[in-house]
Every structure is written in structure tokens, then in C-alpha cells.
Design a protein around this nucleic acid. Structure first.
Lengths: 201, 201
DNA sequence: CAATTTGGGCGAACATGTTCACTAAATAGA
DNA sequence: TCTATTTAGTGAACATGTTCGCCCAAATTG
């Protein structure tokens, strides 16, 4: 009978990878990004230092891999639970607040991730851009629905507005990292709501 | 007669600092941020490694110090040459394009600077926030003038709009780092113009 | 002017992300 | 089944940002 998990080597590799990711999740979730060392992750996982680099090209990729499932789930959940009968502003705040909550509860981790965004290699960037585009497209749909409901001026270009939305979203997020006083999801959502009220509606 | 430059020690320290900054400007201007090593800066400046840390707390501060004069001059020039008789959009594009040109001609340097923004200590952040606030205030003035001229809806809050402007500005800038196709100042200015057309005017 | 303190300059030492040559076990090929 | 090849696993070695203790000339004190 054929093993669905592949060869023995593949199975073992997958197990090692799981060990690394578990250790990484624990450590990154506990201490600041800079405080977490690759050696620490290796030790806690019970494997050698070099092994980690057989699975992940660098520290940041390890971080990203350790939380990519969480982020994907967060994205799916946020989109799936959008209240369809509420006005556009409420819908957008709903989505944004979910993400803001994640960022503030994983503060140091998110900061490291976003900060290194600009240095990603092409492969990663493509993935991120794809993510962004999906987001923008979803927002476009919501905006068009808002235009149909008469909440948003119909002459505006929904795609451009969606981009502006993403822009405001990142701006609020950046503010959260730059100003100590802006690290509460509710406060961030308020700021975002204020911005889109003056620019979108 | 009293020396205006202070004690001999202060003069020598200032000279050393100037040597470091000159070396840093040369190296950071020539190669990527990561390729520039503190040892390299020290060697080129003809001083010891540890000396640099008597003048700058870390590599990024050195980078910032090396180009802070350029940036201040850029800011002053950009603001001083705003065409007063042109419409708001042209004024904003004028300012933004100056900055975009600087960023694209000092690409690696700007990327490192912006990326590390989120990790600054309080002192630096205060300085940056002050910078931002000055920018927002200036934008507020231009927006109000635009409202008086009838170009921008008068019922909008100029301060919030200025914040949205800053948000769009950073968004375009981030795009320049994330997408290879967006590294031309004219193109960036176009994207910015498109955004504010749909959100501000 | 002598004694003491200060602080700039210095490079060894340290921490840590990353690379590399090596081993051995798994796999493929004969 | 035996041999060759591949590759996960490994830790020493490397590169580099940063810290530390030392030195000594300048500044300060008395």
C-alpha cells in the first residue's frame, strides 16, 4: 500500500519542520522578535542550528511561516463574517478591527514583519501583492455595494477607492507602531472610520 | 579671545564626527545599506571602530545623521517653491515629486530608513512625529486655500484630509519599494494624483 | 602647578544571523 | 543486492552590529 505522506524521508522532514514551527510559534509569541534567537528555536525544538536553514531561508521567513496559518484563518474569518446588512463603514471597520486586534496582541512580531516587508525577495513579494490584490478586490465589491445602497458617491471609481482604503488602513497601522498612544484596536478603528468618512463617503 | 567653537576637545570631537559623516555619506551613497559595514566606515574615515559608537548609538542613526541635512534642505526647498497660483493638486504633486525623486535616487538608503522607522527609540520618533505634524499642518493650509478657491468641498475637515494625504503619500512610497514597476517619480506622482482626485476633490 | 576627573579614541570580545563542508541515512539505479 | 547519488541534519566557522574595559590627553579642581 502506498503511503499518502510520501517517502520516509519526506515524512521525517515534515516532522522536523513541525518541531521547528512549534518552537518558533512559542518563542515568537512569548518574546520580542529580536530576543528570539535561531539558536534558541533550534534548542527548544531539539534539533541542530543548521537544520533550520534547511527548512527556512532566514529568520523572517521562519516568523512568517510560523504565523501564516493564523493570518490566513484571520483573513478568511474576517471576510466571512462581514455583516452584509450593515452600511459600508461598519463593514470596513469590522474587517479592519479584526486585523488590528491581531496586530496589537502580537505587537513585536507584527512590527518585525511589517518592517521587513520592504526587504522581501521577489517570491515573497508576489505572495504579498497577491494578498493585497485579493483584499483590494473584496473591498471593491463592498464599495460597489455601498454605491448601490447610495452610501458612497456613485461617480467614484471603486477600485481607486479600494486602494485609498488600503492606504488608510496601513497608515493607521503604522501609527500604531509609531505612537504609543495608538495601540488599542478600538482607537485605531475610530481613526480609520474618521479618515474614510471624510474621504470616501 | 574666546574660541566660538568651544574647548579643544569639542573641536576635535566635531572634526572626528565630520570625518565619520563624510565617510558614511560616501559609502551609503555608493552601496546598499547592508553592504556598508561600520568597520568600512571607520576605516575609510581613518578612525577606530569603537569611536563611531561614541558619536552614534547605532548604524541607522549614522545613516539618518549622514542625510538629515539633505532631507531638511529638501523639505525646505519643496515647501518654499510651492506654486501659489496653481490648483491644490498641482501644489501637492509638486511637493511629493521632490521627495519621490530623492527616494528613488537614494533607493536602498531610503528603504532601510523607512523600514527601520518602526523600531526607533522615543527620541527619534518624537523628531519624526514633529516632522510629520509640520507636514500635516502645511498641507492643512494648502487644503484650506483650496477650499477657499472652491477646488475642495468646503464641508470637509482640512486636518483630517491632510492626514489622508499623508496616508496616500506613504502608500505610494511603500508601493515603490514593493513593486519594481513603481520606481519612477513621475509614475508615483500620477498614482498619487489619481488617489487624491478620487478622495479629496 | 599637581592631582583628579572626564570622556574621546580604540580594538578585543561578544552575540547572533547565516554559510559551509561534512556525515550518514535514505533513495535510486544497476 | 550492491553501488552511486541525493539530501536532511549538524555544528564549526564567518561576518558584522554592538558592548566593554582600557588608555591617555584634555579639562577641571584645589
Amino acid at each position: 500500500m502506498e503511503q499518502p505522506k510520501g517517502t520516509r524521508r519526506q515524512v521525517q522532514k515534515a516532522e522536523t519542520r513541525a518541531l521547528i514551527l512549534e518552537s518558533a510559534r512559542t518563542l515568537f509569541g512569548t518574546q520580542d522578535y529580536d530576543r528570539v534567537t535561531i539558536r534558541g528555536v533550534a534548542t527548544q525544538a531539539g534539533i541542530g542550528l543548521g537544520t533550520i536553514y534547511k527548512h527556512f531561508p532566514n529568520k523572517l521567513s521562519l516568523l512568517a511561516a510560523a504565523f501564516s496559518d493564523d493570518l490566513k484563518r484571520l483573513y478568511r474569518d474576517a471576510m466571512a463574517t462581514v455583516p452584509e446588512d450593515r452600511p459600508f463603514k461598519a463593514q470596513f471597520v469590522h474587517i479592519s478591527k479584526r486585523f488590528f486586534t491581531f496586530y496589537t496582541t502580537h505587537f513585536s512580531l507584527s512590527r518585525a514583519y511589517l518592517s521587513h516587508l520592504f526587504f522581501y525577495e521577489k517570491e515573497w513579494l508576489d505572495q504579498i501583492n497577491a494578498f493585497d490584490e485579493a483584499y483590494v478586490q473584496k473591498m471593491s465589491e463592498l464599495i460597489r455595494a455601498g454605491q448601490d445602497k447610495g452610501e458612497i458617491r456613485p461617480e467614484k471609481d471603486a477600485d481607486v477607492l479600494a486602494m485609498a482604503l488600503l492606504s488608510n488602513y496601513f497608515f493607521v497601522l503604522a501609527n500604531c507602531f509609531l505612537r504609543e498612544g495608538m495601540r488599542d484596536p478600538d482607537q485605531m478603528a475610530d481613526m480609520l472610520a474618521m479618515l474614510i468618512e471624510q474621504t470616501l463617503l
